[in-house]
Amino acid sequence: MSQATERATMPKGTHAVLEHRTVFNANQNLLSVVKPGNHVLDVGCGSGGITAGIALLVGSTGGVTGIDTSEHLIELAKENHQSVNNIHFERADISQYVPEKRFDVVSAARVLQWVANPGEILIQMIALSEPGGYVSILDYNHKKIQWSPGIPASMQRFYKAFLQWREDAGMDNETADHLAAMFEEAGLKNIMVADYSEITNSTDKDFATHINIWAIVAATRGKQLVSDGYISEEEREDAEKDYQLWAATTAQSMAMYLLAVSGQK
């Protein structure tokens, strides 16, 4: 197991970040790519919220397969969406995945940021798509996140350590801004780039849910940073506590820079 693969493994509890995500609020780029009757592969499907939305888009004449390396997330996905007839979940690694047939659309949302070989993963996604089919990737540039007003010093230290922890494992903290060039190099055509940055303001009804994502990261991923020696447990606790207080009393907005890039085989 590579260091990136080991660090990307989602600790139990991290899936709370995924629970509010759907294709309609967190993967809207697929609305212009996926058509009724399509067969779609959702790479890194997590607990299946976005995958279930894709199943609605393709309708009864299409189908969607969700794969993830996490056994507990796949089990959650199966449990959460067992009533959906045109959906299939299985534990699989995209690098070694051999389906019975290729797909009209191969999608990965917020996945390539967690691998050390994004170019190789893109090539595999292309190989699993039909001629004329689409590959669509949605991902962040973590270096362009903006908080207003500024976050507490303890969370600043945590976030800096988080980015270094990722970088040291070979992960690209600026994935979003490198996707278009990767698509061109891989030979995809009709490349489309769209900004889907996640912006939340204190006037939004779901502001608390969105702004607290970094408290969840500190509570879950933070344990990994402590274990790997990037921060102390005291620093992790301070970051989580101080950020929660900031989010509840001071925070006005957060913008997470997110791009969607799609291309045709």
Rank of each mutant, 00 (worst) to 15 (best):
G132V: 08
G222Q: 13
S197I: 03
A176T: 13
Y196H: 12
V193L: 05
E198F: 08
A109G: 15
N29C: 13
T5G: 10
G132Q: 06
M171V: 11
D206L: 14
R110V: 11
A215I: 00
H20F: 12
V64Q: 06
Y140L: 01
G133F: 00
T175N: 05
V115T: 11
I216D: 12
M192D: 12
G44K: 01
S148L: 15
M171H: 08
V84H: 02
M171I: 10
D172S: 11
I137V: 08
Y196N: 10
H142A: 03
T175Q: 11
T250I: 07
V111D: 03
L41N: 01
D238C: 07
I151K: 00
V106I: 06
S197C: 04
A92W: 06
P99K: 09
M256Q: 09
D195R: 07
K101W: 14
T175L: 10
D93F: 07
Y140K: 01
A8Q: 02
R102Y: 10
V115W: 07
L73W: 03
L112P: 03
S107C: 14
T249C: 12
I211R: 12
I74T: 08
H88R: 13
M256S: 11
F103A: 01
A180Q: 14
N85V: 07
G62M: 06
S136Y: 00
V84P: 00
R157T: 04
P152L: 11
L76N: 01
S197Q: 02
P11F: 03
I54N: 04
L41H: 02
G48I: 09
E240P: 01
E79C: 14
A52Q: 04
G170A: 09
F89K: 09
